[in-house]
């Protein structure tokens, strides 16, 4: 079985994230890392492999700038077998629709039975790339799973929605996304980190995927950010120390704001 895990390299959420002059996410001045939510995808791929009687090959795939190699290394050190990095200057500013095109082409070129992704990227947070990739590949989407298993060419999982918890099932090939409820991701072991250094990382550009530069990047994006403004800092509030009357003081505040 060939599993492709799609992972994103994102600016650190605890750092000072901001926009570049062209209103794209600034990826130069902020430290980046493997999206924490995609670690869960790598983990589930590893578990599917460990629970399988077949030979499983796990490829991690990212579309991103040069530094995105760090994200691939991390996934390799967790235990993935090989990596593919799609990198091209013309990709700068690509939106979710464009990203899904590049991912789908790369996944097809790599060959796959199962695609595993995270629930959302921590910078974009849209959570739509897995559905878009499934649409493009023309295979079932089995998304937002908090539990997943693969047996006899069928993927099963549990999706905890707002109104109900659903059991889902689809035949491979398929696209799966997993949530942060699917189980803690493992830490890379020392051995894993050393082994990762020898694992193959292939680099592909747009011409390798037969994608025109006009289809992607800022110019090819189907959405346009017109302005970005830092949210004004909240005006400093009143802070009181509880000396026995804290609850009453708070009630008085809520009453003054007409909440009571």
């Amino acid at each position: 079985m060939r599993i492709v895990v799609i992972v994103k390299y994102v600016p650190d959420a605890t750092g000072d994230r901001h926009f570049a002059d062209d209103l794209t996410v600034d990826r130069d001045d902020v430290d980046g890392l493997l999206c924490e939510l995609d670690e869960y995808a790598v983990e589930q791929a590893l578990q599917i492999s460990e629970n399988s009687d077949d030979d499983v090959e796990i490829t991690v795939l990212t579309v991103g700038p040069e530094d995105a190699k760090d994200a691939l290394r991390k996934a390799l050190s967790m235990g993935a077998d090989k990596a593919i990095h799609v990198e091209d200057d013309d990709l700068h500013g690509t939106d979710a629709i464009g990203t899904s095109l590049v991912l789908a082409k790369a996944i097809e070129k790599a060959g796959f039975d199962l695609v595993v992704s995270g629930m959302a990227s921590t910078d974009g947070t849209a959570g739509i790339v897995p559905a878009l990739v499934a649409e493009r590949l023309g295979v079932p989407q089995v998304t937002l799973l908090s539990e997943v298993s693969v047996e006899d060419g069928t993927v099963k999982g549990r999706r905890d929605g707002d109104a109900a918890s659903e059991q889902l099932q689809a035949s491979l090939p398929a696209v799966v996304s997993v949530t942060d409820q699917s189980g803690e991701a493992r830490y890379p072991s020392f051995k894993g980190i050393m082994a990762a250094k020898k694992k193959p990382v292939e680099s592909w550009d747009l011409s390798d995927l037969e994608i025109d530069a006009e289809e992607v990047g800022l110019a090819g994006a189907w959405t346009k950010v017109e302005s970005a403004a830092e949210r004004p800092a909240r005006t400093a509030g009143t802070i009181v120390k509880d000396e026995g009357e804290g609850g009453k003081q708070l009630a008085a505040f809520l009453a003054s704001q007409k909440f009571i």
Binding site: A13, H18, T223, S227, A228, R231
Partner: peptide
């Protein structure tokens, strides 16, 4: 965006 630290305005082109 960015944990509500920025407000953006966008449209579909």
């Amino acid at each position: 965006v960015f944990a509500a630290s920025f407000t953006t305005k966008s449209r579909i082109s």
